[in-house]
Design a protein around this nucleic acid. Structure first.
Lengths: 347, 347
DNA sequence: TGACAAATTTGGAACGTTCCAATTAACTGT
DNA sequence: ACAGTTAATTGGAACGTTCCAAATTTGTCA
């Protein structure tokens, strides 16, 4: 039961050296004699000393904290993403503030401000819907490196790490076309995000390239969630000329679409082809196993963290945007089980 | 582009007051005159001042950081748990270190040490498997409140928030018995954890109360994961007197059991009754929808955070353990569709 | 051995805040 | 207008570390 915490001075006194020497030992400086280092280290252990980082980085204005802000941690895509970041951040000796905004811009603002006060060395942000470039302004102006993931923020002079959305949905559409599907919808997502725009563009261009009509009437907006998928299906079913397959904004939507189909007595993967996006962990084991565009969230998280750390350690912060390539994982939700053509007839 | 960051002294100079007054304004003290407060606040805004918490809690040894350490963030149960904590922590004006141990004790130790150096005000821990009471020793001795969640650590003098595992599996068994099942297994989980012990005890006692045999031969250990569930089924199928239903260690195992049954050409919910534990988000929408013991992870996270904050704000840290009640959510995986008795005949 | 270089150690000043005690300003009521 | 309050304000001295320049010890070589 200590009245006051043990400090570097206590160590110094106990080891018979000056506090400067103790400090040197603490940061593993090569300047200190092996014998004294050993002695001091022993005392440090014995007294149960705990280093005070607040004091340290008050002096040296350099913290070992990175901020990570994601928009929806309950979505397993983002959870995996966070885990990937966590891995490299921790093994680099940093510690992370991880906050969830739940798509709330206000919360995002608060959280970033708070992190700034705590002196983060850098920030990885998966921005909430509606984030403005100006929200990052003060941060980048004060020279704190920022890495955007998953969602881009055109115009912000920061690094970003995005998946190749365009290629992803293109491949998905091509796959469906190859299977014989002709009326292919795009389901889920809100129209005002960059990610949505890219994915829809990939979808449209692939349709156009195949000479299929690509009017706007086949994209059904909805929340990018399971519930959103259900809603999208309902809208879809009211449509005069029903689509027979869909590429979905993400896996959550795709699962919702399955739910919605089932309650309309349709069998996903048999009566209707479905492609997701993200390849979340459940995609493999769901029934039917989801054909989806795989983006390896954990790997993406790692890459993002590495990028951030690189920027933290280099003097000049040079914005840099990387695109993560993506691949289609074919499973069962598009009906690999033949006679797709047949179904297309009476669909 | 500031050479040096703007400090409370810059503000003071610009507003024509002393740094003490600025400090008072910063912490919203009622001692300062309304007019000066306004003036100072304006200057603060204009100069783009950012508060330096490191400096502050160097002086006052009181941080607004809580540490949250969970053992598996990729499991959506824990992700939801973290989100629940995040909510109350953030709205209380705290910020959180959130770290994932991935069941690694070493990583857990590192992470806790690091958090301690950063001066956390309290810690919420969902301990990794094999955590020792001694791992928390230094923390509690230095007077930092700790709240354990999900998994207990008998002997540690810290608060904890657990779900009522015993009642959960008891209810599950009673439900199955009520449906006519007689040979009921317990599947998944490792025997050396407190949670497992409680759940199995609930299972055994409920069987005994119903006068059914409750030998050890019907519990099948495995990893508490989807893969573990598959493994458990395989063991189960080799068993001479096959069970006809199972209560599973958690939902992940339950899903694995479904997978395993299917590859043995059995239909989960029809040929075999299954109850899960946790009620993860997918339980509702899986096929068949999983009957499971619901524990509301998000609510649990909130409760845990509230408990921790209470302890942080009270002088005396009085360990307190709360048990979260639990309820059985009946869905389709036990075959609500009658004639259970019949099946039991030839099973 | 003396001189010089290298290796090691060391006091103080700083970092940006809060606290304390003390000072000054602004009100009271008579 | 004056003493007595009360309201506002304010200089230092902390907090625990790191940095710097300077001091001390040790080693080397002629």
């Amino acid at each position: 039961m200590k009245r006051t915490r043990t400090t570097v001075i206590d160590i110094a006194r106990a080891a018979g050296v000056s506090k400067s020497t103790v400090s040197l030992v603490l940061q593993g400086s090569p300047l200190v004699n092996e014998a004294t280092r050993a002695r001091v280290s022993a005392v440090i252990r014995d007294l149960g000393y705990v280093y005070n980082r607040s004091a340290a980085n008050l002096r040296q204005a350099k913290s070992a904290i990175v901020g990570i802000v994601v928009n929806d941690l309950t979505n397993s895509f983002f959870a995996e993403l966070a885990v990937g970041m966590d891995m490299v951040v921790q093994s680099a000796g940093y510690v992370q503030f991880l906050a969830n905004t739940g798509e709330s811009i206000d919360r995002q603002r608060e959280v970033i401000a708070s992190m700034r006060e705590h002196g983060i060395a850098g920030l990885i942000l998966s921005p909430a819907r509606g984030t403005q470039v100006s929200d990052l302004k003060p941060l980048v102006e004060s020279g704190i490196p920022v890495v955007l993931v998953v969602r881009n923020l055109p115009g912000a002079r920061v690094s970003s790490l995005l998946s190749d959305n365009y290629a992803g949905t293109s491949q998905a559409v091509e796959h469906l076309i190859g299977l014989g599907y002709k009326r292919i919808a795009f389901m889920g997502g809100y129209a005002d995000t960059a990610v949505f725009e890219e994915r829809v563009r990939g979808y449209r261009d692939a349709l156009a390239k195949a000479g299929l009509h690509s009017g706007g009437e086949f994209v059904f907006n909805s929340a990018p969630s399971r519930a959103g998928g259900v809603a999208a299906v309902e809208k879809m079913l009211l449509h005069a000329e029903r689509p027979t397959a869909a590429v979905c904004f993400n896996d959550a939507v795709a699962f919702g679409v399955c739910d919605g189909l089932r309650s309309a007595r349709m069998e996903p993967g048999v009566d209707f082809g479905i492609v997701g996006f993200d390849d979340v962990i459940e995609a493999k084991t769901a029934v039917p196993a989801l054909t989806t565009v795989s983006v390896d969230p954990q790997g993406m998280g790692q890459r993002a963290a590495q990028l951030l750390l690189k920027q933290i350690n280099s003097e000049k912060v040079e914005p840099e945007t990387q695109t993560l390539s993506v691949r289609l994982v074919v499973r069962e939700s598009c009906g690999i089980k033949k006679h797709v053509q047949d179904r297309e007839e009476y669909a």
